[in-house]
Each structure stands twice: as structure tokens, then as C-alpha cells.
Amino acid sequence: MIVAERKPLGEIVEMIAQLHKVTVIGCRSCVAICLAGGEKEVKMLISALKLKNRKEGRKQEFDGFVLERQCEKEWVKEVDDKILASDVILSMSCSLGAQTIADMYPEKVVVPGLNTAMFGVPEEQGMWSEKCLGCGDCIIHTTGGICPIARCAKSMLNGPCGGSSDGHCEVNLDIECAWYAIHERLKLQGRLDLLEAVRPPKDWTPSHSGGRRIIVREDAKLTQHQKRGKEAVI
């Protein structure tokens, strides 16, 4: 899932300072699961912002909604009128949701309430860890199901660097060394031979280094004819 964190409130206050009608929009997907932009977080943010305004004698109007998935236009359209009636959209979604709204309503100011941090997994309640960088060329079948691109601070592909200490990463001793973990996993599976071969330089073109990525599935795309039909229904 996409893991995000709420921006410091001071930063949020500053972004919306000059705008009167504020619509806060959360998302029930990833950011709700990581406790950053779901229903509760939207309500708490609005309360806090209202309290601040009350204390400082400032007037701003707040409204709040939570969409099923903010990154999909169909769901955003549900609050079309609310968006059109506001001066600023404070998105409590990952940047994808915020950008979906920004692209759909180019005349509207959209500000991010969250910092989108990573592709991660909930390790335990209240803790998420990064496990993928979206490099576009997955190799975890050769590394015991552990991604060294995301989980090694140096994205090393040929084994641990010289800073691996007691199985921990030199950058942060609270974090396991990915290559230590890979070695342990492959040892368990009796497949340490996978580590012998020299892995030549990685081709980064399928990653962001190859430019912004757009994926097209021709078989899933609607034909012009289908699009016309769909528009007629709506």
C-alpha cells in the first residue's frame, strides 16, 4: 500500500491561510489504513483547524468528505459540487488523490495535507516499512523474496556492503541489513548458490529513471465507440 503521513499542522495552516472556503477530502484506501487520511483524520484535522481559527479570531469555512478512492475520477465526481463551491481543496490522500483532483479541476487550488512517503506494508499496529521502490523490474525471486532495491539503503545488487553490523544496516542500526536477511533466507532455503553470480549493472529504464511511466493495456482500454456510449449513459 501507499504509506503517507500528515504534514505538520503549521504547514497545513500556512498553505490554506489566504483561502476562505476549505474542503478537506480524505480517502478510504491506503491512507485510511495507515491512519493518515481516513474519516477520523479528516474530522480531527478540521476540528484542530477550527480551534486554531477560533483562538486567533480568524474566519474560514470548513467542510469534509472521505472518498472511497481519491485517485479515481469516478469517486471524485461524487463531490463535484462541493469541490466547485470551495476556494481550496485540502487533500488528505496520497499525492495521487490530490493530483487526480488537481487535474480534474485545473482552476481549483489543491494543497496536500499529507506527505506521501513510500510503498510499504503495515509491520505491526502503528508501524509501516518500505519494501518496494517501483523499479519496474522485479527480481525478488532471486533474493529470497526480499527486495534489495528498496530495503538496502544503497540498493545494492551483489550482496551486503562492509557496513553490515550484527545484521543491521550502517545507516540505521534499528533496521535490518536487507542483504543479511537475504542471506539468511536463502540459507534456509538451501539456495545460497543464487548469490554466487555477479549481477551486472541494473537496467534502470523500466524505473522512473527511464522517464515518467504510463502503462497501457490495449485490451482493457475503451474504444471511441464505447467511450461515446458511456458518456451518453452518464
Binding site: P8, L9, G10, V13, M44, A48, L49, L51, K52, K55, E56
Partner: peptide, 8 residues
């Protein structure tokens, strides 16, 4: 912590 951040 939220209150401190908004000056309350």
C-alpha cells in the same frame, strides 16, 4: 501534540 501544533 495536535493542539500544540495549532498553538492551543
Amino acid at each position: 501534540s495536535m493542539l500544540s501544533q495549532v498553538g492551543i
